[in-house]
Design a protein around this nucleic acid. Structure first.
Length: 554
RNA sequence: GGCCCGUUGGAGAAGUGGCUUAACUCAUAUGCCUUUCACGCAUACAUUCACGCGUUCGAAUCGCGUACGGGUCACCA
């Protein structure tokens, strides 16, 4: 008589190790009792998703806060959907955000004692575990075709019973090991299913770090644990990997709650202790009034590369994501004047239970604040690094031009009332472009946006006077006083108040005069502080631009 | 459809039965400041916590029901 043990021996004839051997090979980690081992377990099916960044950020944070270990495991068991090279890309983008795993899959190499960290290289481990299960009679081969399974589903639907492969509907469940052996020897294709002992009418409870106790119907499904290509399914790999990699807290999306009972039963059947679970909410987007999951295909902001290309500082995206994870983070940043998430204490209890809408305004806010805190030199270095890859125009203008550009970036930088006019790096060139002569020429090529109420004659006279009277050595206050005097010479009031009191006797006020100078110098009605602009452009360039404007007016 | 999770302003949320006339942040609006812009400052924005019923002296907070939103029911993860 053929037993399951014989069957297991036949299918897994290459396996001599036991689960006990694996337990010894991957012993519990030598960490303090409160240290958390977390992981990010992406499938290499595309570029890094905002939601994945969010998950890995939280996971690495939890490990960091507890002096634990954060590792990356590549879940590449779906060979059909795999995209060549995306695993490396994922790691690269993660590191762009300063998320560097302590161990695991690192793109070109692997690091750590609990590997391999790529599921396709762990076949041996899965086989040991499945063999064990089959010897116990808890796993069996299933020869059902997709068509047969579809048929079962239709019957179940018609009868209004719970769909799935279980109980009496599990056609291959009661095939004798003898027959199974015969069919396998005959070369029939098969998968291996788990023999569930559960019942849908029973409830199981498990604890979720974010949601508390969750009560849910027990699993009764004989889920596939090994696909016909010999690779494990997610459910099975999760149990084996998180056990032998000694994960303490499994952080994953809330879409996994429904299958948690499967995992519970699998861990139990394998004799593994259950890890802690945290099912985090997903990031959503408002679409035609409906909330929906951010989709990589439809939403550019779903892909992390979008934010990199736009030039959001990595700290901004991290701060934004942390504010989603723990809403008190935002208050913390204000009271501590600090956006470093490493210094903040994260807690699962404070995590939202609901899917949050992606909020571009909030990201912009963080980004602005963070950019405003950079030193001019730091900002310059970041811009060079970023523009080299994503903004050629900016790159050619700032590369090797550090002194000049730093001066530009330093206008009204620092202090309580720091200037906040950049939300991301892509905005930099459009804003500071006028400082560069070629860009300035381009801007004024088709004319200057002078106030049309003022006559050309007046503007010309003001500019001519300015060109001869402007004193570059004066500090801001005195310089502006001299501009007031210039205004008065041309029949403008020296302040808006004076002008308002006697509108009919003046042509305008000093602000209008400043505007003329500004338009002449930058080609736009607004700019950073005029005095600063003049200082940076320098006498020669200012004179050149003023004269150019005068010529235009003539 | 079954099951699970959720529902406080436009967004993120605080709130754990009376110290809440529902904090804080973003967004928006208006005003002040100001040579423009940005900054900063000030004010406004939920008579009410999806709705209904119930428990209670008292409910956003507890219970039940309804509605709505999301998730899940693969040899995908």
């Amino acid at each position: 008589m053929v037993t399951y043990k014989d069957l297991a021996q036949y299918i897994f004839s290459d396996i001599n190790e036991t689960i006990e051997d694996l337990e010894k090979k991957y012993p519990p980690r030598n960490l303090s009792c409160d240290a958390e081992v977390t992981r990010f377990a992406p499938s290499p099916t595309g570029f890094l998703h905002l939601g994945s960044l969010f998950m890995s950020l939280v996971a690495s944070k939890v490990a960091y806060d507890s002096n634990g270990v954060f590792y990356v495991r590549l879940e590449d068991t779906d060979t059909k959907r795999e995209i060549e090279g995306s695993g490396e890309e994922l790691i690269e983008q993660l590191s762009h955000f300063g998320i560097v795993p302590d161990e695991g899959y690192l793109g070109s190499e692997e690091k750590g004692d609990y590997g391999p960290y790529t599921q396709s290289k762990r076949a041996h481990i899965y086989r040991v575990c499945i063999k064990h299960l089959m010897e116990q009679g808890r796993a069996y081969p299933c020869f059902c075709s997709h068509e047969q399974i579809e048929e079962i589903r239709q019957v179940q639907e018609a009868m209004k019973v719970i769909p799935g492969y279980y109980g009496e509907y599990a056609l291959c469940r009661n095939i004798t090991p003898e027959e199974a052996l015969k069919r396998i020897k005959a070369g029939e294709k098969y998968v291996i299913r788990f023999r569930s002992q559960g019942n849908f009418s029973n409830k199981v409870t498990f604890h979720d770090l974010i949601r508390g106790d969750i009560q849910i119907a027990d699993n009764a499904l004989d889920v596939v644990i090994m696909k016909s290509d010999g690779l494990p399914t997610y459910h099975f790999a999760h149990a084996c990997d998180d056990h032998f990699m000694r994960t303490t807290t499994v952080l994953r999306g809330e879409e996994w709650i429904a299958s948690a009972p499967i995992h519970l039963e699998l861990f139990k059947a394998l004799g593994f202790d259950l890890p802690k679970y945290a099912h985090a909410p997903v990031i959503m987007k408002l679409d035609n009034g409906n909330k929906r999951k951010l989709s990589k295909r439809k939403d550019p902001e779903a892909s992390v590369s979008h934010f990199i290309m736009e030039g959001f500082p990595k700290e901004a995206l991290k701060a934004y994501l942390m504010s989603i994870a723990n809403s008190n983070f935002e208050e913390w940043t204000i009271t501590n004047k600090c956006f470093d998430i490493n210094k903040f204490k994260f807690s699962f209890e404070k995590m939202s239970l609901d899917g949050v809408l992606f909020d571009q305004d909030k990201l912009n806010y963080f980004s602005k604040e963070i950019i405003a805190q950079f030193s001019a030199e730091d900002f310059y270095n970041r811009l060079v690094e970023w523009s080299k890859l994503y903004d050629e125009t900016l790159y050619t203008h700032i590369k090797g031009n550090k002194e000049y550009v730093t001066k530009i970036l330093n206008i009204e930088r620092g202090g309580e009332k720091a200037r906040k006019d950049f939300t991301f790096y892509k905005e930099v060139y459009p804003i500071i472009g006028f400082f560069f002569n070629d860009r300035y020429d381009q801007i004024v090529k088709d004319g200057y946006p002078f106030n049309e109420v003022m006559s050309k004659e007046v503007i010309k006279n003001v500019l001519t006077d300015f060109a001869s009277s402007n004193d570059y050595s004066l500090p801001n206050d005195l310089w502006f006083n001299s501009l007031k005097e210039l205004a008065v010479r041309h029949n403008f009031a020296d302040s808006n108040k004076t002008y308002k009191a006697n509108k009919d006797i003046y042509l305008g006020h000093v602000g209008d005069v400043a505007e003329m100078v500004r338009v002449a110098l930058v080609g736009a009605k607004n700019s950073p502080n005029l005095h600063s602009v003049i200082q940076i452009l320098g006498k020669e360039e200012v004179d050149k631009r003023i004269n150019k404007a005068i010529d235009y007016l003539a």
